[in-house]
Design a protein around this nucleic acid. Structure first.
Length: 645
RNA sequence: GCCGAUGUAGCUCAGAGGUAGAGCACUUCCUUGGUAAGGAAGAGGUCUCGGGUUCAAUUCCCGACAUCGGCUCCA
């Protein structure tokens, strides 16, 4: 007999061996029909693998994240089976489950798979699924496994096998398809009731751009057709929030082929919004002890040779600017830090004045690969809300914490609640690619980890993601299609102070090396605005939005009165437009609703007589009648609740 | 940079080997209105660009450029 503890704490006794599926059946038929995998003492397992000793058991359904992942992983195998049947001779790389489904990397030789083929693949998958073929696990010797894939001619699987130890290798077979796989899987293909191939893309074998590019097919499956329909609807809704779409519709920014790829043009409304964001941060930075500085858009090539960036990135950047003097070369500024280092060096510094904090909204230029450009999130000219803090080693942690506070303040004002703080540390196995002493790195990494912990951040640690000159803390936010982008960033740098020979005089009257912290709460204005647009679906916080209110005269007779009102609103620091088009009220309301204008004031005879206004809130409808003072108060309350003042 | 797809009016999209269409937006006129689309007329296109095939190419083929989805990269 073994004792099995279920998630609710209850303990059941069974004759050993017994499978999780049998236990599910013993609980209820319905459960047995819906259960996909088992979690045995924190290990996900097949429902059919026997339990031989006391354990904790959770039965996973599609609602459970692990259940979903198991089903999607099994679906990758099903897609592979379909592909093999449609395109004989296709070879397989890896096929994992991911957050929104699964993919499989395949090599289909001469044949190219395109969107036209998706329908046939989906159909084949469902056809194979309907046979309810069980996923059969088999432990196999390495020799046999190699023989199998040699016979099949699949060099990718053979390469994967090289890294596996004999005795740990398992195969899974469903229907006519066998794959190298450690599992687990759902009991049989019958659970897959709806399948959709989502996209096709190239992907380098093992993520190495020097190796062959395989075809990556992305898909998703569901246990119910209705769930797929809902999912596709959700994706469509998300696509409507795409900042590229909204940026165009709301006339915030544009690109022109005549100007160049990845070089954004800020339109008046977008520039106004950006300006407001800058003012907001500048104010916060003055309060936090930053000194504004301004530096040019180009700098001597030598400056970047000193910083080490030319050596590392020069080849792939915008090329040096030539001058009449042959010996001179300049670079478009790819970063602000070297300039700020030179500002630091303009005079001797005492330990008493540290930390000094130089802040600049500095526009930088980087030649990003053409395939990487993406709306405003990845461009070739962008403005960083940059600042560099020069401090003593003993001040690093304190300064770091202050910057975290600033980032959190910014995120709160813009209602960014969902973000992850990513701590990027050195690659544990390859410390060669980093500049700086072991001791300094250890200190910096510890300082970041401590600061993040003390500020109560939810963090993920990524090894190997650090910059070459120091560890960093990045604030990651997802876009409408759940792609993750880095916004705020804080980076410790022991390298540049060294390279620029920065010093300060300590209390001991000796020269010491300051530590530098790079930081940007927004990251870049471009990317931040992009993510902000998607985050709020184009409906910006009231304090930011270009037009806070629309004055709508009911007929042309009241246009003058509407103009007068908008001037009055200006006195209250309320930004209002007058919609004096020759259209009916209903039409004007509709258009201003669609343009996401937060408030509307309809004016006609009644308003002119009484000096009170009917206020309508975007998306909410009529709020009632207000005096101008009362309306201004609504707006001010709204603003204060987001940025305080 | 690599793999795949796409490129027609300001926007969203139809279309076909015989030099182009819809809806919205725009302009003008009528209408002067009370809370999510009033009516009529008009204007708007080197069908991304460059080659080739053809009597004829925006359509078929090749190339470039740009955009989109990924991969790699991201100071």
């Amino acid at each position: 007999m073994i004792n099995v503890t279920l998630p609710d704490g209850s303990v059941r006794s069974y004759e050993s061996p017994i499978t999780p599926l049998e236990i599910a059946t013993s609980i209820s038929e319905g459960l047995a029909r819906n259960v996909l995998a088992a979690k045995v003492d924190d290990q996900i397992a097949d429902l059919t693998s026997p339990l031989k000793k006391d354990c904790h058991l959770a039965l996973l359904k599609f609602d459970d994240v692990e259940g979903k992942k198991t089903m999607w992983h099994s679906s990758a195998h099903l897609m592979a089976e379909a592909l093999e049947s449609l395109y004989p001779g296709v070879k397989f790389g890896i096929g994992p489950a991911i957050d929104g489904g699964f993919y499989y990397d395949i090599d289909c030789g001469e044949h190219t798979i395109s969107e036209k083929d998706f329908g046939a693949i989906e159909k084949k998958m469902l056809e194979l699924a309907s046979t309810k073929s069980p996923y059969v696990r088999k432990e196999i010797s390495k020799r046999e496994a190699i023989a199998y894939f040699k016979e099949k001619g699949d060099e990718y699987k053979l390469e994967l096998l090289e890294d596996l130890e004999d005795g740990t290798i398992t195969f899974y077979t469903q229907g006519g398809f066998t794959d190298l796989c450690k599992g687990p899987h759902i009991p049989n293909t019958g659970f897959i009731k709806a399948a959709k191939i989502l996209k096709v893309a190239g992907a380098y074998w093992r993520g190495d751009e020097k190796r062959k590019q395989l075809t990556r097919l992305y898909g998703i499956t569901f246990p119910k057709q209705k769930m797929l329909t809902e999912h596709m609807h959700l994706l469509e809704e998300a696509a409507k929030r795409d900042h590229r779409k909204l940026g165009k519709a709301l006339e915030l920014f544009a690109f022109s082929q005549n100007v160049g790829q990845g070089l954004p043009l800020w339109l008046p409304k977008g520039a106004e919004l950006r300006e407001r964001l800058e003012q907001f941060l500048k104010k916060a930075q003055v309060a936090a002890g930053y000194d504004p500085v301004v530096t040019p858009h180009i700098g001597s090539k030598k400056l970047y040779e000193t910083s080490g960036h030319y050596e590392k990135y020069g080849e792939d950047s915008f090329q040096p600017i030539k001058t009449p003097d042959q010996d001179e070369e300049f670079l478009l500024k790819p970063m602000n830090c070297p300039h700020h280092c030179e500002i630091y060096k303009t005079k001797p510094r005492s330990y008493k004045e540290l930390p000094v904090r130089f802040a600049e909204f500095g526009t930088v230029y980087r030649y990003e690969q053409s395939g990487e450009l993406h709306g405003l999130t990845r461009v070739r000219a962008f403005t960083q809300d940059d600042a560099h803090i020069f401090c003593r080693a003993d001040q690093v942690e304190e300064e770091f914490k202050k910057v975290i506070d600033l980032v959190l303040y910014v995120f709160k004002a813009l209602d960014f609640k969902e973000f992850t703080a990513q701590i990027s540390l050195r690659d544990k196995t390859d410390k060669e690619k980093y500049i700086g002493s072991e001791e300094n790195w250890n200190k910096a990494e510890a300082a970041i980890i401590n600061a993040a912990k003390e500020k109560g951040l939810q963090t993920v640690v990524e090894y190997g993601e650090a910059a070459f000159y120091g560890p960093k803390l990045d604030f990651m936010v997802k876009d409408a299609l759940s792609r993750s982008w880095q916004l705020g960033t804080i980076q410790v740098d022991y390298n540049l102070p060294e390279r620029f020979d920065l010093t300060y005089i300590g209390s001991d009257n000796q020269k010491h090396r300051p530590v530098m912290i790079h930081r940007a709460p927004f990251g870049s204005m471009e990317r931040f605005v992009a993510v902000l647009i998607e985050h709020c679906g184009g409906q910006f916080p009231l304090w930011l939005t270009p037009n806070q209110a629309a004055v709508i005269p009911v007929s042309e007779k009241y246009n003058d009165f509407a103009q007068k009102l908008s001037k009055l609103l200006k006195n209250y620091e309320i930004r209002a437009l007058v919609d004096d088009r020759n259209e009916k009220v209903g039409r004007k309301i509709r258009d201003n609703e669609l343009n996401k204008i937060p408030y509307m004031l309809v004016v006609g005879e009644k308003e002119m007589q009484t000096n009170t206004y009917q206020v309508r809130k975007q998306g909410k409808g009529d709020l009632g009648t207000f005096s101008l003072d009362a309306f201004a108060e609504i707006i001010n309350n709204d603003i204060n609740s987001s940025i305080g003042d």
